[in-house]
């Protein structure tokens, strides 16, 4: 049975310190509200997993919530650096961060293996790159049929995957529209899947080829409108490209970053409060 919980209760109940957590969503439907709730509740020692850390992991890393990061591309899309991620790697601020670094193809294979409960993912990949020299998790296997050497990555099975979606119904079926990245695979790879949604409806139309995570795969649904801002929810609100540009300035300086996080994330009680605090600044 899918549980329906307020986001703060879902995080308090299911995401302990030290957990491995994947907040997936490739540019679209990034679960910002859930990431902020992890920060509000002061989670520590998390193993963060995400193909593109994006602003949400920049924030978690800068607030000292993470001990390890599994990722494949750590930039601010279309803008430049993630300054808090860089500061953690280059200067160990506010604490050292272990890296488990991959390519997109490798992480995708890791999620697919995790979703299928296989021990590893296999790909014709990591060719002509120094990555395997620095990441002992990247290994190889000889194909028993052709003799070809293929790259392997361990299955990714996060303790908790958190996704954001447009809609869930009252049984816990989840529908996602638009760019879906590796959300389906990351969701199925998790020991527990939490989904924050824009809207809970009585009934979803039959999905045909649309993406639907059936309720038997969904552990928790939390109603959280606007929960992907400043990323976007196709059909609901657009990506706030201007905020992604402004984040470059906010995150560049440790003091300014900390002040912003204290004021807007730790200083508000929930996602609605967070958005309202930003609206007051904009007004």
């Amino acid at each position: 049975m899918t549980e329906f919980l307020p986001l703060s209760e879902a995080i308090a109940k299911h995401v302990p310190d030290g957990a491995s957590v994947a907040l997936e969503g490739f540019t679209h439907l990034i679960p910002f509200a859930a990431g902020h709730e992890l920060i509000r509740q002061g989670r520590r020692d998390l193993h963060l997993i995400r193909m593109t850390p994006d602003l949400i992991y920049d924030q978690l890393i800068g607030m000292g919530a993470a001990r390890r990061l599994t990722f494949s591309w750590g930039g601010n899309p279309g803008v430049g650096s993630l300054h808090r991620l860089r500061d953690a790697v280059e200067q160990a601020w506010p604490r050292p961060l272990e890296l488990d670094e991959h390519s997109h193809a490798g992480m995708a294979a890791g999620y697919r293996a995790g979703a299928a409960r296989l021990p590893f993912g296999v790909l014709r990949g990591y060719i002509g790159t120094d990555l395997p020299k620095h990441n002992p998790n990247i290994k190889s296997v000889r194909c028993p049929y052709t003799g070809e050497e293929l790259a392997t990555v361990p299955a990714l099975n996060p303790d908790v995957t958190i996704l954001h979606a447009q809609r869930a119904d009252r049984r816990g079926n989840v529908a996602i529209e638009g760019i879906i990245g590796a959300q389906r695979e990351a969701g199925l790879a998790a020991k527990l899947l939490i989904v924050t949604v824009e809207e809970i409806v009585d009934e979803l139309p039959p999905a045909m080829n649309g993406v639907l995570l059936p309720h038997c795969t969904v552990g928790v649904v939390s109603h959280c409108p606007g929960g992907a801002w400043p990323s976007y929810a196709q059909g609901r609100y657009a990506r706030d490209n201007d905020f992604y540009l402004r984040w470059d300035d906010i995150a560049r300086d440790r003091g300014r970053f900390t002040e912003w996080m204290e004021r807007h994330v730790r200083g508000t009680s929930d996602h609605r409060g967070f958005l309202e605090s930003l609206r007051r600044v904009a007004a």
Partner: peptide
């Protein structure tokens, strides 16, 4: 690193 860049993304494959 002196400068940490974003990393591979899709580039390697």
């Amino acid at each position: 690193p002196k400068t940490r860049l974003p990393g591979a993304g899709g580039a390697t494959e």
